[in-house]
């Protein structure tokens, strides 16, 4: 993990040219976009970047996206959900293809991140709570934990419309089966997998209380989703006795 610690000491952000190496459908409304970013210094799990697109007349549009990958190297993976009224996300999801170039600035953010504890150490347990495409930075964190073979207990609670809308389903399953302890629980808001018979509907305080690591275990909690989701969940966590200072939130905006 010495590379990651180096990053910590000298986080250098800059604009980089990124070439799309692959895009593929992630869900019915989202795409997974793999980028080759020349000069990318690597990034911590949970960081984000800015994407800048330039039109032929010089018009530019810039948006922030969470990064689904982490670690060294110049390969960066994004997963972008198409916002119905968006200007940039429909282009990224529907138009972008391998070989296209765009600009990225980053890595950005040093708070909503997770670093593996020093070798052999077990850190405070980690509870990840995702609403919809807010899972992207949490996938990066869960995979960094899995890749490090880290012994810290992890749980992910993932609220999602239907099984088809799950981002990185195979990667999450692989991380769950790996040696690093990770439990994954889904809350389906529209429809559950066939035959599962599980409850369907928005997350409730009771469901949250039953699913997350208890406050007595003093977990660090990362919550990412829409503003409404994050506000509800964070308020319930405090009611359930979690330390406000141990709750880190990130929201996706309206652009």
């Amino acid at each position: 993990m010495s590379e990651v610690q180096q990053l910590q000491a000298a986080p250098r952000t800059a604009w980089h040219v990124a070439e799309v190496t692959e895009t593929r459908r992630e869900t019915p409304t989202a795409a997974r976009i793999s980028l080759d970013v020349v000069g990318w210094p690597g990034n911590l799990a949970g960081q984000h970047l800015d994407v800048r697109l330039t039109a032929p007349d010089g018009y530019t549009a810039t948006r922030s996206y969470s990064i689904a990958s982490s670690g060294d190297g110049e390969r960066v993976v994004l997963a972008v959900d198409r916002l119905p009224d968006g200007e940039v996300s429909p282009f990224l999801v529907d138009e972008l293809r391998a070989g296209d170039r765009l600009e990225v600035h980053g890595p950005l953010g040093a708070f909503f991140v997770w670093r593996p504890p020093a070798s052999g150490a077990v850190g405070r347990p980690v509870q990840l709570i995702a609403g919809g495409s807010g899972v992207v930075p949490l996938v990066a964190i869960a995979r960094a934990h899995a890749d490090a073979g880290d012994a810290t207990p992890f749980r992910l609670l993932y609220s999602v419309r239907t099984p088809d809308d799950v981002f990185f389903a195979a990667e999450l399953e692989a991380a769950r089966r790996g040696p690093a302890p990770l439990e994954v629980e889904f809350v389906y808001t529209r429809s559950a997998p066939d035959g599962s018979g599980g409850p369907v509907g928005r997350i409730t305080r009771e469901r949250l209380a039953a699913a997350v690591i208890g406050a007595d275990a003093a977990p660090i909690v990362y919550v990412c989703g829409s503003t409404g989701f994050v506000e509800r969940v964070a308020a319930w966590l405090i009611e359930l006795g979690h330390d406000q200072a141990a709750i880190r939130t990130e929201r996706y905006g309206g652009t």
């Binding site: 040219v17 800048r52 697109l53 330039t54 039109a55 032929p56 010089g58 018009y59 530019t60 549009a61 810039t62 948006r63 200007e87 282009f91 138009e95 972008l96 296209d100 170039r101 765009l102 600009e103 503003t227 506000e231 929201r251 905006g253 309206g254 652009t255």
Partner: peptide, 30 residues
């Protein structure tokens, strides 16, 4: 900047009150 193939953008309502790299919104993100 260089051109990203196929990107035209939607809005041309450039407003002198918008600093570089900013997009006008009508809701109030948190």
């Amino acid at each position: 900047s260089f051109i990203t193939r196929g990107f035209t953008g939607r809005s041309r309502e450039r407003d002198d009150r918008l600093p570089p790299g900013q997009t006008l919104v009508h809701d109030f993100p948190v």
